[in-house]
Design a binder for these strands. Structure first.
Length: 284
DNA sequence: ACCACGTCCTGTCGGC
DNA sequence: TGCCGACAGGACGTGG
């Protein structure tokens, strides 16, 4: 379940292994992997061939590789189980290989998009004037972006009529936060996931934002987290932010602050993990 | 305009 | 032993 730190690790891998290379041929092996490319797989392959890759960029969980010779980008999202692998040509095809990109050089490697659950995919889009693929113009900056607007986020929270975890997962408010880091940041902030955003004072919002950044930076320092053997970085090495989670997946285990057994609650077709003592539910 | 929820997908795991 | 349901969840479309 790649979130921002894992995606950043993949971005760095792309920067190192595919920047500057020219596409020779693209094979789309599963239509769902290009479902965000409206004209379909054949068009995706045809339009990409012959173009040279620039330096991979990232916003939140989205990755894109600008074409060095056109005002367009290859946009990628890893979804739940997506991997971008740089593999030798002779490596056997992965079971869930969805897209293969061959290059026109003699480096002997190709780029592969592998994805078991097919929530992720690649697509080709024109750029907006600020160099962003047009279809992700609505995605907010992420908290590690130097241009992230802290004050704007805080006032947006107060104006919303929703609850805090929903807001953290809303990619138009703040991007790059998924279920795992949301639970981690809320635990660190001693906030219940159902706290109304309207009750978030400036200091409380600032503290939460600080914890979101701390959790992400810690994961980044550890080379990206993975809690699922499906997740592998761009070179095929599995990252693992070992034993550093305080909330996610810790049902019935003692809270690392107060020792109370942690709880899991079904929430929005997923789960929320929290300490019932440190993170008191809001008064109804 | 804002907000909530169902849906897509495949593999693993645990219970009966 | 084998079947079946629950679970994992990011982002988008739809309906309120």
């Amino acid at each position: 379940m790649p979130e921002l730190p894992e995606v950043e690790v993949v971005r760095r891998g792309l920067e190192r292994w595919v920047a500057g290379r020219t596409v020779a041929e693209v094979e789309v092996l599963h239509p769902r992997a290009v479902r965000r490319h409206p004209a379909g797989g054949a068009d995706f392959a045809a339009r990409l061939a012959g173009h040279r890759f620039g330096t991979a960029m990232r916003r939140g969980k989205y990755l894109w590789i600008p074409l060095a010779d056109a005002d367009a980008s290859v946009l990628g999202h890893l979804g739940m189980s997506g991997q971008l692998l740089v593999q030798p040509h002779e490596a056997p095809d992965e079971k869930h290989l969805r897209i293969r990109v061959r290059f026109d050089d003699a480096r002997g490697t190709e780029l592969r998009f592998v994805d078991q659950r097919t929530f992720g995919g690649l697509s080709l889009h024109d750029n907006t004037p600020d160099g962003l693929p047009d279809v992700i113009a609505h995605i907010a900056r992420d908290p590690l972006d130097p241009a992230f607007d802290d004050a704007g986020f805080q006032s947006a929270l107060r104006q919303r009529r929703t609850t805090i975890k929903r807001a953290l997962l809303d990619q138009s408010l703040i991007s790059g936060v998924g279920n795992i880091y949301a639970d981690e940041a809320l635990w660190r902030s001693k906030l219940h996931y159902e706290r109304p955003t309207a009750t978030m004072t400036r200091p409380r919002s600032a503290e939460l934002l600080g914890h979101v950044r701390d959790v992400m930076n810690a994961a980044l320092a550890a080379g990206g987290t993975s809690f699922d053997s499906l997740y592998v970085n761009v070179n095929g090495e599995s990252g693992y932010f070992d034993r550093s989670l305080d909330a996610y997946g810790r049902e019935d285990e003692p809270c690392r602050r107060c020792g109370t057994p942690m709880r899991r609650r079904p929430w929005m077709n997923r789960s929320s993990y929290f300490c019932p003592r440190c993170q008191r539910p809001p008064r109804p």
